[in-house]
Nucleic acid binder design. Sequence first.
DNA 1: ACTTGGCACTCGACTGACCGGAGTGCCAGG
DNA 2: CCTGGCACTCCGGTCAGTCGAGTGCCAAGT
Lengths: 339, 339
Amino acid sequence: MLDDRKLEVLRAIVEDFVSTTEPVGSKSLAERHGLGVSPATVRNDMAALEDEGYITHPHTSAGRIPTDKGYRLFVDQLSTVKPLSPAERRAIQSFLEGAVDLDDVVRRSVRLLAQLTRQVAVVQYPSLSRSSVRHLEIVHLAPNRLLLVLITDTGRVEQRVLELPTTLSDDDVALLRQAFGSRLHGARLVDAPAALSDLPDAAPMAIRPVLTSVMSVVLETLVDQPEERIALAGTANLTRHVLDFPQTLRPVLEALEEQVVLLKLLGEVNDPTTVHVKIGEENNVEGLRSTSVVTVGYGPDGGAYGGLGVVGPTRMDYAGNMGQVRAVARYVGELLAGA
Amino acid sequence: MLDDRKLEVLRAIVEDFVSTTEPVGSKSLAERHGLGVSPATVRNDMAALEDEGYITHPHTSAGRIPTDKGYRLFVDQLSTVKPLSPAERRAIQSFLEGAVDLDDVVRRSVRLLAQLTRQVAVVQYPSLSRSSVRHLEIVHLAPNRLLLVLITDTGRVEQRVLELPTTLSDDDVALLRQAFGSRLHGARLVDAPAALSDLPDAAPMAIRPVLTSVMSVVLETLVDQPEERIALAGTANLTRHVLDFPQTLRPVLEALEEQVVLLKLLGEVNDPTTVHVKIGEENNVEGLRSTSVVTVGYGPDGGAYGGLGVVGPTRMDYAGNMGQVRAVARYVGELLAGA
DNA sequence: ACTTGGCACTCGACTGACCGGAGTGCCAGG
DNA sequence: CCTGGCACTCCGGTCAGTCGAGTGCCAAGT
């Protein structure tokens, strides 16, 4: 149905269109790429590709442009992830090596990614639930108010103020600190409920009620409703493609302002170890239907910490951007694992 | 030089242009506003206004549009800050009343402001240096590593990990906690150096060296380099004015991504109690030369906590936006003062 | 001295006609 | 199955012409 040459024609169309922004015609295509066949032949192939829905043309006498389906085929079968240039490698290293803390790492990464890909970049902070506890501190602010400070292995520091239904003494708090600390140190937050499950039984009878209540509050705030954070950069790059989104820029910017939307983008990755691409209409997000999203997980085992990626026009350099996204994810993963 | 009617003509031009986006001519102006004079007279006035540099016209046979100087005069002398509509009042209340913590307040405020003004909104988190200490906690993470957690009166929680040149015992840390806590509780951060000045002398000889070293690190991180945070929303609103910035959208978005730039905008306010307006070229920021910025301080005494404002095209509804910015600042100020 | 109506002039915006070129689809022949 | 040829489509640019909004200026009126 689609022989090799037709696929080659599709690849050529995608590559030409991505680099020139203009519908590509049979003649220039046959010339520029060494296909060794005449324009007429290319036209026949194009007609076939169009029948199958991989390409289309804006009007009768115009060249062809890829459809979402065409890009999909291109990404899945025709392109190989482009390795980074030495210059890019150097850029990543010099950009990230000076980072002092997690905030700094994330901020630098997102800017780096935006600069490298010339797209909008998104980086998720290491997810709390997937991190493990380096230190958990409980501070007694007032009789019925505790400050919880959690430091994770990735260097993320998160704090909550808890209002308690009961009052506690300093000794109680010391007990709590000891009990939680010993059980949670080194544990992953998702495992926290299990790690704490024996706590009520092991504790002195006197503080059991308050302990269970504190426990439930702790679990709720840290495990059930973990706060996800996102960094964004390079929205100005969208304006470079103002040709691509005629009046669509607005909804894109709106979508990018929604944390929820961004989390959804990064979170929908099933297999976090490979680079994922969502093309145009494949995005379930209203407003990003005219964009493509390239994401990947970072951290040990590929995606243990969180996700990052870029958002750009469907007419993007998939091979290059996939390589850049993957490379940044690896560097960041290593950086945080070594911290 | 500029009699009352000329000023009235300028006002009419600004108002018409702001609402229609189109250069305004003498005839339609004389009709629509009840000036009671003929178009010819208006033309004479316009010529005078143009000589003075308050208005200009894009080409010979086009209507007039205000210059930056014209907007400036309008803002300074011709417009009165527009009071909010009941609907706007209600919107503010219902939007802000559900806020649970500082983060929430800021996030809601910035979205509210963006929605109300239909511009890009900027809200600065309550500045650390201008806040006072509600609680300062020192946690002993490791022999030579401390975690500092600062809670301010506005509910902002800030933490730093300090690496020390020396090692400390738990007792040392307890002493530190006690010494810092008693002196800083309730003090404004700007006053921290003074509040701590007697500390080295009052402390037991044994820990003086380490204490002074900790002190200097604490002061440095909390007072000398306080971390300012900024929230941004409504960038999508820029696209509504794509007519105003033909190819200028890019630099605007770029400028808005720079924390430093935003802080500069909010920080340049001399008298924080009144609404400030920077028009077009008045902005010292490259990239915002085609925009106007409306800012005001919020908090007790007008600007004690921080600043907030909006960024939009020079062709904006100054009276309305000034009112909205001021109103939100008041509500937020009250909200945080009551917390 | 200021206002006003009149008038000539300018210039952008819109229209319709025209043309060239890029590109297509189809067909018949190799 | 590929290829060259050919007729056709349609976009984009150009050019001339018209229209209308708006201006600047002047002379007359109050």
